[in-house]
Design a protein around this nucleic acid. Structure first.
Length: 275
DNA sequence: TTCCAGGTGCATA
DNA sequence: TATGCACATGGA
């Protein structure tokens, strides 16, 4: 799937890796499209992705971090094959977003990002998060790192409001203070339900945001975040249902340990307007 | 003007 | 446990 050449990760494959699909499918907000390349920022690190004749090249200041970040040791041909074997109706969605990979993002950044995402739109979420980087993060070369917990603790509720967070400003402020006494790195050893129980204690983290954090930071595929778009998908493919808890239960029951993957293909396809 | 965006917190029954 | 409402903000 890939090889390492100095500070580059070389991917000779265009079927299971597509930066547009990966970055624009809604799982991440800290990236920019610049002419011929995508630039991705995660925690304090940065990677640039360009297309080559046979695939893509990722240039980065931390090769190991981004091999894990892009989940390059998982075989997505197998993922898609297994998904389609049991769920034929996903074919159009998987063909549309064939290059999606579920990222393994920084835990703290993902918690803050998805608190900001609640009842918000992607353009504004992105703007607010880059604002948080610029105001509280360290300057590294030509970009700003995502602030550490210690750095973000310096922010006031008014600071976050000024950045456009609206009523979520208090959630960010409160959650930072709750996280002082929490070692979320140890949560990796817990069951999905137990991690979710911990996440739900955080201010601004409800069932949907918790599922996003589990999927995009803890690599738990047995969750199905249900938002306004997935509700539309459900009402289109399955039956009319407005209770999101019920929708989630039915979807996880159907997709089981492939729920997270299915969710991303469907979310990306639905948002494209091609459904 | 109203609706919508990767929903959650809180009061109430 | 389940339901209903308020909550900032800006684009369509």
């Amino acid at each position: 799937m890939f090889k390492i050449e100095g500070n580059k990760i070389v991917i000779n494959n265009k079927n299971d890796f597509n930066p547009m699909h990966i970055l624009e499918c809604g799982q991440v907000f800290s990236y920019k499209k610049q002419n011929d390349r995508y630039v991705v920022y995660s925690a304090g690190l940065k990677a640039e992705i360009i297309e080559t004749q046979n695939g893509f090249e990722i240039t980065t200041n931390n090769v190991d971090y981004f091999i894990n970040y892009f989940d390059l040791n998982t075989n997505y041909s197998d993922v898609k094959k297994n998904l389609l074997y049991n769920h034929k109706f996903l074919e159009d969605a998987v063909n549309f977003g064939y290059g999606i990979r579920i990222l393994k993002q920084d835990i703290f950044e993902t918690i803050i990002s998805f608190i900001v995402s609640a009842n918000n739109n992607i353009k504004r979420i992105t703007q607010i998060l880059f604002g948080i980087r610029q105001k509280f993060g360290k300057k590294v070369d030509d970009y700003y790192a995502f602030p550490t917990l210690k750095e973000l603790l310096m922010g006031t509720v008014q600071d976050f409001k000024d950045l456009g967070a609206g009523y979520r400003a208090e959630y960010i402020y409160d959650t930072c203070r709750q996280l002082i006494n929490v070692d979320y790195n140890k949560w990796a050893n817990l069951s999905t339900d137990d991690v979710k129980e911990q996440l739900l204690k955080l201010k601004g983290v409800g069932p949907k945001v918790a599922d996003c954090i589990l999927l995009f930071a803890f690599a738990r595929q047995d969750v199905f975040p249900v938002d306004t778009w997935i509700e539309k998908v459900y009402n289109c493919y399955f039956q009319k249902e407005s209770n999101r808890k019920t929708i989630r239960e039915n979807l996880v029951d159907s997709f089981k340990e492939y729920s997270g993957y299915a969710q991303q293909y469907l979310f990306y396809y639905q948002r494209s307007g091609k459904i």
